[in-house]
Structure formats: C-alpha cells, structure tokens
Amino acid sequence: MGIHFRQVSHQYFSQQNSDYQAIYDITLSIEDQHEFICLIGHTGSGKSTLAQHMNALVFPTKGTVEIAGVLVSQKRDKKTDYNRLRKHVGLVFQFPEYQLFEETVEKDIMFGPLNFKVSPEVAKEKALESIRLVGLNESYLNRNPFNLSGGEKKRVSIAGILAMDPEILVLDEPTSGLDPQGKRQLMRLFKDIQEKTNKTVVIITHDMDLVYEYATRTLVLSDGNLVFDGTPDDLFRREELATWSLSLPQTIRVLKGLKEQFHLELNPYQKTVEEAVREIEKVTSR
C-alpha cells in the first residue's frame, strides 16, 4: 500500500498577496515498511506542504496522492472518509506540544485511538505501550501534561500519535528546540521505533549529521521541486549540494579538511564521530 505521489503540485491561494506555489510536479513512492526517510531542504522549500499531503490534511491542486489505496485528488469526494487515512499515516507536527489538552498524559495519548473507535481498554493498553516506546515510564501516565518539561511534552505528543498505530509515521522537524543530546536521543528513539515495529518513518530535519547517521533514504526539496531521491551516501557525494542550500555533515567536513590539509589518504565518508575517529587513528597509526 504505502503512499504514492503522482505529479502532485500544490498552490496556496491568497486574497491579498499573489498566489504561492509550494510544490511542483512531485512523483514519489513511500512504502509502509522498513524505510527511514529524511526529507530535507531549505526553509520554504515545501517540506511541510509535502508532509501534509501524506495524510490528506492538504489536498493537491494538481495530480493525485494515493494513501493506503485511497485516491486523494483536487476534488474532495464526499463519500470518502479522509479521516480514516490519518490512522494509516500519523503526522506529528512541528512543536507537537501545542496539541496537548487533556488533564492527564494517559487521557491525551488515548485521545487519538478513541477517535478511531478503539475500545477504551485497548486504548489504555496502547497508551502504556507507546509511553514506553518513547522512553518514558508508566509513572508519567497520571501526570498533568502541562507540568512536563519541553522534551517530555514532545515525547508524550509523539506517543499520542504512536498509540494510533499508524503504518507510516511522519514527523515535521521533531528535533527543533532541543539540545544536541536531546536531538540524538530522539533520533535514536525513532530508529528504535522503526526497527521494533517495522513502520516507515519520515522525518523532516535540517540536521545533516542526523540525516547521514540515520536515514536509509533521503528526499531533497529545493524551491518546491524534488531534486534528489536516494541514499544519504549518494547525496553527500553530489556536487549540487550547495545549489540545494545543503551542507555536509560534520564528520565529512572535518575529514575532508584533514585530508586536504595533511594530504592523508583517508575516506572522509564516515557516518558517526566514532567511525571518523577510528578512520583517523587507522591512517595516523600507519
């Protein structure tokens, strides 16, 4: 099943300003298993618009999106229950902490499943399951979500989406506003979730280090066009990075610098800091 974009364009209409086209003619397929996709691009490149197409929050103005077998096009079909699609594709918004509103964490997590007509007992189980999945323990379930720290709120709201048990999890800049350690923890968490549950995870991010370390596939948007679809290894070997307003990950940058400065024969394409250190040691010990 998965999500299939077929020549999708989206234009925002405005009364005062001129109309604004967010994405152009995008064709791509996302499977509902095993993928860890990073969606990258400069600010205003259409990432969020593309992500909102993935669960029919936004309708294409041209082309079609097929979500879990349901065709979504410009025209809203009265017979189709678009709400149902949101169970298949869970979308976590940027600053998801703004969606919390219940008096306990448990109730807030149960809110999603209950909307999809899951029985309260099952929803309760799901809440317990997903709060563990995001790395918090069950003591949080009875706490007030508004008394949590920023990072904890983020985790709780992600648990709220996970409890709906979507096949594909889309996250819009989930790591923004967190410290570097928190970012890494959260990314590891998503990787964990993906490996444990076999779901596909799509993440919008600006952090190239995380992209290089975690993604199995990257999508690059530039001015609303899909300019790259492939592995991060391929991506960071491309010449056009600068024209897409992307930078290299830290590891590659440092290793490339060392290579040029000291004419070392090392392979700069190392995903993590540890691997980079090992590569340097290998070369220098010779």
Binding site: Q52, N55, L57, N83, R86, K87, G90, L91, V92, F93, P96, Y98, Q99, F111, G112, N115, F116, G160, I161, M164
Partner: peptide
C-alpha cells in the same frame, strides 16, 4: 495549525 494537528489525531 492546531486544527491540523488534532485532525491528524483523528
């Protein structure tokens, strides 16, 4: 924004 976020939760 909040409407969209809650719509994502069904």
């Amino acid at each position: 924004r909040i409407m969209k976020a809650q719509a994502s939760r069904g």
